[in-house]
Structures are given as C-alpha cells and as structure tokens.
C-alpha cells in the first residue's frame, strides 16, 4: 500500500516559516515513524521525538539518517507525563497524526 505523503513538502515549508530550528532544543509529541522529524531536525541542536507506538518508534530509529544519529532521539513516552525536567526545550511540536 504505497502512499506519498505531502510530496510537495508543504508541511515542511509551513513548519519552517513558523519556526527557526537553528540550534534549538526541540520536543516533538506524536512523532510516529519520524516522517516530519527528518524534515526539520538537521538544523536543531537536539530533537527528541516521543510517541506511544513502539513499532512506529522502531521504524523512526531505523530510518533515521546517520547524520542525525547524535542529535535525534526517539522515546516511548506519553504526553501527559513527559520524562523531562522543567525548561528542557526551546520549542515543542504537537504533530497530530492521522
């Protein structure tokens, strides 16, 4: 079941027009398989993607480009109980999956 999601990358364009990721510490809630994460994380200082779906996180980790290995991490966590200290991130992305 092959699908192309946002081949024009409109989502990425809008995301970048709403936020400058340069050297930012980013938390992405609902990262799923990391499709969106891979499109912005390069310029961030560090990006943490969280999701409840362990299988999706496994795919996200496998598909993570080698150049992002040191700055992008995927964590199994729920948004109602974030395993991070106060004031850890400069920005958060609440990416509602569908």
């Amino acid at each position: 079941m092959t699908v192309q999601k946002d081949p024009e990358q409109n989502e990425t364009k809008h995301l970048h027009s709403f936020a400058d990721f340069t050297d930012r510490r980013v938390l992405e809630i609902g990262c799923g398989e990391g499709r969106l994460t891979r499109r912005y994380a390069k310029s961030s200082a560090v990006t943490i993607g969280i999701d409840l779906d362990r299988n999706a996180l496994r795919v996200a980790t496998v598909d993570r480009p080698a150049r992002l290995e040191t700055k992008v991490h995927f964590v199994n966590a729920e948004s109602e109980n974030l395993p991070f200290q106060k004031a850890t991130f400069d920005m958060a992305i609440f990416a509602w999956s569908f």
Binding site: L27, L36, A87, T88, F89, A92, I93, F94
Partner: peptide, 21 residues
C-alpha cells in the same frame, strides 16, 4: 494535561507549534 506538561518542559518564552489535519 498534556498541554500543561508541554508548558512545563518549555523554557520561558519557548513556543509550541500545533500542526494537525
């Protein structure tokens, strides 16, 4: 509650991007 958690882990003057269909 999730939004309050996000607020907690953001720095002062940090921001949230809400992106959804």
């Amino acid at each position: 509650h999730a939004l309050n958690e996000i607020r907690r882990v953001l720095v002062p003057d940090g921001f949230l991007i809400d992106l959804r269909p």
